[in-house]
């Protein structure tokens, strides 16, 4: 099933008196359960594309459909609903709520979706179990390591079992061991829950895990590569 469809997407930003084109004529499609990544150097447009898919930004030209909804035509309330119900976000710097506990951070999306306390408790504990942090539920982010923070962010993104998870440079602040750990966690969740993962990265460690690699250069799709399952296992 198609989750994301991008048609002739162009994104421009005002810059001084002129404009800067961050994305040019992008055409892509992503289906359910993909583990794909937008790869490219800084300034290639991967984060911009991820933001548009995440309905945090809108296209200048072309159309982007996420779960059948045209991002450019959504009101801010509809866009918020789409994010709330169907999307999970994982950020480079974790973006956890610093004064909330691990439990409360993971619980947050469920509060927005108005789950009752019993359901929330069970779902949060399940999510923390996926990422191996059940013993840290009462800790606050400043008491956790970078790897643990990112695992909390994964649990927060996954707790509502969204159709799509968008991860922007999720390993940029992590060492190799932690990077592999969280990538294995995400891959496992992708496999078990059939959640579509879309990464924006230039980290080789992440790239090695991807099943589909889309190379961006200067705002255009430069190359695309599908990796066979056997190759990933080998890697």
């Amino acid at each position: 099933m198609e989750i994301i469809r991008i048609k002739n997407l162009t994104k421009r930003f005002p810059m001084g008196k002129g404009e800067f084109t961050a994305l040019r004529d992008i055409n892509l499609e992503f289906g359910t359960g993909e583990f794909a990544g937008l790869i490219g150097p800084s300034g290639s447009g991967k984060t911009t594309l991820l933001n548009i898919v995440g309905s945090l930004d809108v296209p200048s030209e072309g159309e982007v459909f996420v779960l059948g909804k045209s991002i450019g035509n959504l009101s801010s309330r509809e866009a918020a609903q789409l994010r709330k119900k169907n999307m999970g976000f994982i950020f480079q710097s974790y973006n956890l709520l610093q004064v909330h506990t691990v439990f409360e951070n993971v619980e947050f999306p469920l509060l927005l979706l108005k789950y009752n306390a019993t359901e929330r408790k069970k779902m949060v504990m399940d999510a923390l179990e996926w990422v191996g942090l059940t013993d840290k539920e009462k800790s606050k982010p400043p008491q956790l390591s970078g790897g643990e923070c990112q695992r909390v962010a994964i649990a927060r993104a996954m707790v509502k079992r969204p159709s799509l998870v968008l991860a922007d440079e999720p390993t940029a602040n992590l060492d190799a061991k932690n990077s592999h750990h969280i990538l294995q966690t995400m891959e496992k969740l992708n496999r078990e829950l059939k959640t579509t993962f879309l990464f924006a990265t230039h980290d080789d460690k992440v790239i090695n895990y991807l099943h589909r690699k889309i190379y961006l250069l200067d705002g255009r799709v430069d190359n695309e590569e599908i990796v066979e399952h056997s190759q990933i296992i080998q890697s």
Binding site: A80, R83, F89, N95, F108, R156
Partner: peptide, 9 residues
């Protein structure tokens, strides 16, 4: 930004 990303308007 995080609140907005998580579904707040």
């Amino acid at each position: 930004g995080t609140y907005i990303a998580l579904g707040y308007t």
